[in-house]
Amino acid sequence: MELGQIQAYAYFFFTAFLVVSLYAYIFHLYRAEKKGTRNYEKYGNLALNDEVSTNPIETVGGAREPLKK
């Protein structure tokens, strides 16, 4: 197989893989939200509640205490 062919196959399959992964990810996000298992839109509030005195939405596991008001 020539280099050009390898390139073409690699390109095709990797692109297909990425497209499928991306849409699977998005599909999963929407489904999880519809079923009520997760709420992703709450992360949009990260920009609004950004004073250092406000509590994080989720803290980094264990290492730190959340800040108290």
Binding site: Y43, L46, P56, I57, V60, R64
Partner: peptide, 10 residues
Amino acid sequence: IRRERTLYIS
């Protein structure tokens, strides 16, 4: 050293 677990879009 962040406190907020999720990385915001920015």
